[in-house]
């Protein structure tokens, strides 16, 4: 079972439907007490960095999410949900993120339309389980005004180019992030969610989670 974190931000239904479409059961979780019931976790999100962190804090999610990540179970952040995996966000001042990945989230420099909205292609930087079977230059749907500047280059699995080259997929051990919306990126986004779902099941079988 894959849990989807409901903290009042993001189109949870789309993520749930997309997982169902590719054959995985998902549950929308309104409270962190349910975290021990799931084998994998998706943290979605739209809106502003500080708002999202504030909502997570109010819901009592911060510590449980960090513990979940440390438990070794697969954890995928989507869009803003990926950005808050990092240490610091620079949206409307400096704000602390979950700190599961080293780096900062910064605004696109002037000279382009913001938000970066639409379909952009991926450059695969490193082999990764999440991107298995997904060809280089595949297109995914993005909507964001900020992007991550990772502290560790090896955490970047794929990049995209919007005048600046930025991380589109990040990965560190069991923690993953996609800057785009896989649930809205038919057909390759569904492939990515399939990979995630399989990984959740394999991990659960191996570790007993």
């Amino acid at each position: 079972m894959i849990g989807i974190v409901d903290y009042g931000r993001g189109n949870l239904r789309s993520v749930e439907k997309a997982l169902e479409k590719v054959g995985f059961e998902a549950t929308i979780m309104a409270s962190p007490t349910e975290l021990n019931l799931v084998n994998g976790l998706i943290l979605p999100g739209v809106g502003a960095f500080a708002d999202a962190m504030q909502a997570l804090r109010q819901g009592g999610w911060i510590e449980p999410l960090i513990r979940f990540a440390r438990s070794g179970r697969p954890f995928l952040g989507i869009c803003l949900g990926m950005q808050i995996l990092f240490e610091v966000g620079e949206e409307h001042g400096e704000h602390a993120g979950l700190g599961l990945l080293a780096g900062r989230v910064v605004k696109f420099p002037p000279g382009r339309k913001v938000p970066h909205m639409g379909w952009n292609s991926l450059q695969l930087e490193q082999p990764s389980y999440l991107l298995e079977g997904i060809p280089n230059e595949s297109y995914f749907y993005f909507v964001h005004s900020y992007y991550a500047e990772p502290g560790e280059k090896r955490d970047v699995a794929a990049t995209s180019d919007y005048g600046v080259v930025f991380p589109a997929v990040v990965s560190k051990d069991n923690v993953w992030g996609a800057q785009f919306h896989p649930e809205k990126s038919s057909p390759w986004g569904l492939k990515l969610l399939t990979n995630f779902g399989k990984w959740v099941n394999e991990n659960a079988a191996l570790s007993g989670h």
Partner: peptide
């Protein structure tokens, strides 16, 4: 539509 369509 949301159940069958996976583009925005």
């Amino acid at each position: 539509t949301a159940e069958q369509v996976f583009i925005p």
